[in-house]
Design a protein around this nucleic acid. Sequence first.
DNA 1: CTGAAAGCGCTAACAA
DNA 2: TTGTTAGCGCTTTCAG
Lengths: 334, 334
Amino acid sequence: MKKIDIAEVAKAAGVSTTTVSRVINHVPTVSEENRQRVLEAVKKLKYRPNPSARRLASGQNDTIGIVIPRFADMFHSFYVSELLKGVGTGVERLKLNLLLHVTDGHSSFDLSSVAGVLFADIDGNEEQLDWVMDQGIPCVVTNHFIKELPVSCIAVDNLTASEQVVAYLANLGHREIATIAGHLRTPVGIERLEGYLKAMKARDIEVKPHFVQRGDYSGPSAREPARRLLTHDDRPTAIFAASDEMAVTTIEVALGLGLRVPEDLSVVGFDDSPIAAFAKVPLTTVWQPLSQVGELSVEVLDKLMGGKLRRPVKTQLGTKLVERQSCRQTWLEH
Amino acid sequence: MKKIDIAEVAKAAGVSTTTVSRVINHVPTVSEENRQRVLEAVKKLKYRPNPSARRLASGQNDTIGIVIPRFADMFHSFYVSELLKGVGTGVERLKLNLLLHVTDGHSSFDLSSVAGVLFADIDGNEEQLDWVMDQGIPCVVTNHFIKELPVSCIAVDNLTASEQVVAYLANLGHREIATIAGHLRTPVGIERLEGYLKAMKARDIEVKPHFVQRGDYSGPSAREPARRLLTHDDRPTAIFAASDEMAVTTIEVALGLGLRVPEDLSVVGFDDSPIAAFAKVPLTTVWQPLSQVGELSVEVLDKLMGGKLRRPVKTQLGTKLVERQSCRQTWLEH
DNA sequence: CTGAAAGCGCTAACAA
DNA sequence: TTGTTAGCGCTTTCAG
């Protein structure tokens, strides 16, 4: 079974390769008769145009790469699924192809075969980003707002989101508001903490030293911080955790200590991951427009590739506080 | 800024294009001196070989496509993340590229640019599968065990898994075991129900008509079935739900009805999704080797593409029952 | 509306 | 060890 190329089809249809090419590419200047003959030949021979040859000849490349750092934990899984949903939508709408690369950090993949790159976060992929930028390949970074580099970033506004959480809690009458922060080596973690600090300050609420604890977003990492907070003489009436996992763990610790949630303790999470709704106490948390981030990123990348955008774009999308049942007004506590 | 091709580099390095090609492709028969000169020229000119030209000339294609049906619900998200983790690993190990296509069902994507296709389930993608098989493109289907078609399938052994659930429950002393099945139009749903039925029969336990209820895997879909089961005069002491979401909902309904879990009702789920561990009552459920499925699929596909495999492979991977706190021995109930 | 011919950038014999 | 020379399969002028 020999391979069928455009010439075979042309021969079978009794036309030139050019005409076949025209039919394939939907160029209108082909007589209906020829078009039919070509279409028939294509079907009969099961002809499939060679994409490499196509791209080579037309000098085009419509595939973008997306690099995703290690999927380890649940947060990343949820984050990635949501992001991918948006990216998938965008890619489909713009008729692009998506080359996926799940990286463990340093494996260099064939970024060369791609017209643009999307970094789903870059924690651990800094060198790859550098390389891509160095090569002048258009790229967009999501979830990681990089102020220093002239690169496009699409992320969620974590700072404002955290401020809103504190505002919400304060409106409920809370003043003893503690936080369990996430990793402080990434912008996300830093911003969530800063938002808390800023909002507290804005309301002239004192941030007692032990009110700022740290975890790493994972559930177990919040166990100790939560215990410290809740067994302290001066315990908070509300805790803002930088992830839903940590919030859920916090609730568990509280319950284990004989505290009632939300009666004795209000808890707010971040992410609105699936566990939030199913948790022992349905969690009030921050929803992020992750799939929008994905879709927008593709759009921006596409423009970048098309040269329709000269300067890097830096965008932050808003979040929404979703109220469930883990918070309560202080004056109802008694 | 003109485009740099291999000829430019050759000129700059004072060698032929062939030599440059050799250096790029790590062909050993190049003098150290020339190699260095080429490398320098490459760096100075920021030369990046054109992947299309490369593939065209070498007649190779090392990218595989993965098509993922609509991500709608949580189950799919979790399923996809896990699968992708495995696929990512496999692809990296085998030095393949991964073209991702998230489909809403019928959009035809550029499967032509790919040497093999992985279908992450095919619910709703039947025509695409047909087309790919028709074109003779190697492919592997996961999660969906297709007996009728000569196509490779890698899936989880749902039948045995369900049998084991019933066995587990029976060993705990339960005889009044009901089930809330999932979609019965896909093999997964059917197998989970069949496993239940088969195991019940094997133990000579009567399956009362109302003991077989149906949902669609989603949490809300189990609400009515659970209520029917639990408000029935002849209510079961154990319920096996075909998904964790449905199991969690079942627990909620039971709790709402004043039943205790696991004291008055044992519940088993399926998937071991993240919500299982965080649920109100930590859920005993079935863990599936999803990432292994992904990795194995890539391996099989690679062999298929390399012609190292003539017949389609049909493999079922085993599951594991993970015990948490939603089940209890019947004789402890009183 | 159609076709001949000139590449697209690279690889792979084949010589040297 | 190196270079010459054909293509790889398709698109795209440019005449007709």
